[in-house]
């Protein structure tokens, strides 16, 4: 189950329960469309509902973040349980093109700074 919430310049996506690969790919495609249609500057992906982060999950999240970046939008991934973080380390998996933050507050702060830097840089 997924909850999507628009908050100011952020799109906050919360994965509330484990997803099948097909559901994950659907989510990736839907977000891609949603972000194009919205004025959101950044995406927060809360993955605290996921049961595992395997190679497919990491690849899909990295791909999503990469596509966001290509559209000039930043991504933060939050809510990775310590146990899952440990499994990723042992497996040798990394999330790419995204900021990793522990919770929503921190995720929004990181994204806010990145957006501000970008604005400052383009002026």
């Amino acid at each position: 189950m997924i909850r999507i919430c628009h908050l100011a310049m952020y799109l906050i996506v919360t994965i509330l329960s484990p997803l099948s690969d097909g559901e994950f790919l659907d989510l990736q495609n839907n977000l891609n469309k949603q972000i194009q249609a919205s004025r959101s500057q950044a995406v927060v992906m809360d993955v605290s509902g996921l049961d595992v982060m395997d190679s497919f999950t990491c690849r899909t999240l990295s791909d999503l973040s990469c596509r966001m970046k290509a559209q000039g939008k930043e991504t933060a991934i939050i809510g990775i349980h310590p146990e899952i973080e440990e499994s990723m380390k042992r497996f040798g998996l990394r999330l790419e093109h995204a900021a990793i933050a522990t919770n929503l507050e921190e995720g929004l702060a990181v994204l806010g700074r990145r957006i501000a830097t970008k604005r400052h840089g383009s002026n």
């Binding site: 190679s55 690849r59 990295s62 499994s87 497996f91 040798g92 998996l93 990394r94 790419e96």
Partner: peptide, 20 residues
């Protein structure tokens, strides 16, 4: 063998499974 498979690429992920 490790390589493109471990970064979440197209491999079988078997080296990762062995480490788990």
């Amino acid at each position: 063998q490790d390589g493109y498979s471990t970064s979440g690429g197209l491999g079988l992920g078997l080296p990762g499974v062995r480490r788990l």
